[in-house]
């Protein structure tokens, strides 16, 4: 089991249903800056013509996660399927993990006085036998697909074999597991929405990275 998510980000309409569903599902603290997931927005213009791109995002559940390494109390840990979790009881709010995260995916939950973050809905849904996260389930244009990278016959791997993809901040070396599907049929949009140095991957090119990172970290995965 190695949980991950693919995002067909060019279908995102920035309605933020995912953000609300996440908050309702997981009881996330109210407040515009208290977010487990979000829709990143890049707005600019070329020769006066505006363009806007949306990047729905959340914790990348990195396979080689720096947030786990820096945590002094073991509050940050890998759960089953490599899901990166934050144990509120163990957190001493040193915020080292928030500094270490390349994606700014963690925040302080003032209710529990502890760090909070995306869990891939592990406790509310996945561990109960459901196969979708709240953000995926509610999405009008079905941007997200949650799945298991170890299941070669599963929907997620099949999709990644069919479509090219990229990850955010690959150079950080954390082997993130949010796969952004490359827009195949609109090169103009693709160019506008991807940085010049972004590596476009295929399943063949990325799979070794996953396997290597998993080998390194799997012994730390804790069944909860």
């Amino acid at each position: 089991m190695n949980f991950a998510m693919a995002l067909d980000y060019q279908s995102c309409i920035n309605c933020k249903a995912c953000e609300i569903a996440c908050k309702e599902e997981n009881g996330v603290q109210l407040g515009a800056d208290k977010q487990r997931i979000w829709v990143g927005q890049r707005e600019s213009s070329i020769f006066g013509n505006p363009f806007v791109n949306y990047y729905p995002s959340q914790c990348n559940h990195c396979q080689d996660a720096p947030c786990v390494d820096v945590c002094p109390t073991g509050a940050s840990y890998f759960a089953e399927g490599g899901i990166v979790m934050a144990d509120k009881d163990k957190c001493i709010l040193c915020k080292g993990c928030m500094e270490a995260c390349p994606y700014d995916a963690r925040f302080v939950d003032d209710k529990f006085v502890a760090v909070d973050k995306c869990t891939f809905c592990y406790d509310t849904r996945i561990s109960q036998g459901e196969t979708t996260t709240a953000c995926q389930a509610t999405c009008p244009t079905k941007v997200r697909l949650f799945g298991d990278l170890d299941d070669e016959e599963g929907e997620l791997v099949k999709l990644l074999k069919r479509r090219k993809f990229f990850v955010l901040k690959e150079a950080e070396g954390t082997v993130p597991k949010l796969f952004y599907l490359f827009p195949e049929n609109d090169t103009h949009f693709a160019e506008n929405s991807i940085a010049h140095d972004t590596t476009i991957h295929t399943w063949e090119s990325f799979k070794p990275l996953i396997e290597k990172a998993k080998q390194k970290r799997e012994s730390q995965w804790i069944s909860i």
Binding site: C15, K16, A17, E19, I20, T138, C139, P140
Partner: peptide
């Protein structure tokens, strides 16, 4: 198979 932000809220 969807519920928008207002629907969820």
């Amino acid at each position: 198979n969807m519920l928008c932000p207002r629907g969820v809220a």
